[in-house]
Amino acid sequence: MAEVDPALIYEVLKKIQIDVADIKADIGELKIRATATDEHLSGLFISTTGINNRMDRFDGRLDRIERRLDLTDAR
């Protein structure tokens, strides 16, 4: 059986440890970016909901105006 060099194993383990640390840092950055994206999308959904509510109010107002001016189609 071949001899195992502890120094070689130590060097390999140090490189693996550095790689794992780099991966952890990258994952941390990705989590931050994902959170920012989620927050941005939430803001867009809230904005879209507000716009839809305003459009619904405008639609109701337009219906009332049309009825008042007798501009509606006879159904």
Rank of each mutant, 00 (worst) to 15 (best):
R67N: 13
N52F: 05
F45D: 09
L62K: 14
A21L: 15
A34M: 08
T72H: 06
N52P: 01
K24W: 06
G50H: 02
I18Y: 12
Q17S: 12
K14M: 12
L30F: 03
I27C: 07
S47V: 08
I16A: 11
G43L: 01
H40Y: 13
K14V: 15
K14S: 15
I27G: 02
E66I: 10
D5W: 05
D38K: 06
A36T: 10
D63S: 15
D63R: 15
N53F: 01
F45E: 07
I16G: 09
V4K: 04
R64S: 11
M1D: 06
I32D: 10
D73I: 08
G50Y: 01
D19I: 13
L13P: 04
G60C: 05
I9Y: 04
D59H: 14
D38A: 11
T37M: 00
N52I: 05
D22A: 07
R68E: 13
A74E: 15
T48I: 11
V4S: 09
Y10H: 13
E39W: 00
R33Y: 04
T37S: 03
I9L: 14
L62F: 11
V4H: 05
I16Q: 12
D19T: 14
T49D: 13
I23H: 01
D38Q: 04
A74L: 12
I46P: 01
D22Y: 11
R75C: 00
M1E: 06
A21P: 08
E11R: 02
A25K: 14
A25E: 12
R68D: 14
I46E: 07
D5A: 03
K31M: 12
K14Q: 15
I16C: 09
D38E: 05
L69G: 04
L30K: 09
L8S: 13
I23W: 02
E11D: 15
I51W: 00
D19P: 01
D70N: 11
I51M: 00
A25V: 12
P6R: 03
S42C: 05
P6S: 02
S47D: 09
D63F: 05
M55A: 12
R68Y: 10
M55Y: 06
L30P: 02
S42L: 10
D73N: 13
S47Q: 11
D22W: 08
T35S: 07
R57F: 00
Y10A: 15
H40V: 09
R75M: 07
G50L: 03
L13A: 15
T72F: 01
V4G: 05
I32F: 04
I27R: 10
V4C: 02
A7E: 15
I16S: 10
M55Q: 06
L41V: 07
I23Q: 06
N53V: 02
L44H: 00
L71F: 13
F45C: 03
T48N: 05
A34D: 10
D63L: 14
D56Q: 06
E3M: 03
Q17M: 06
S47E: 09
D5F: 08
D22T: 14
L71A: 12
A74H: 08
R68A: 15
G43V: 00
A2H: 08
R68P: 00
T35M: 04
T72L: 08
I65M: 15
D73F: 00
F45M: 02
A34H: 09
A25I: 11
L8N: 07
L13W: 12
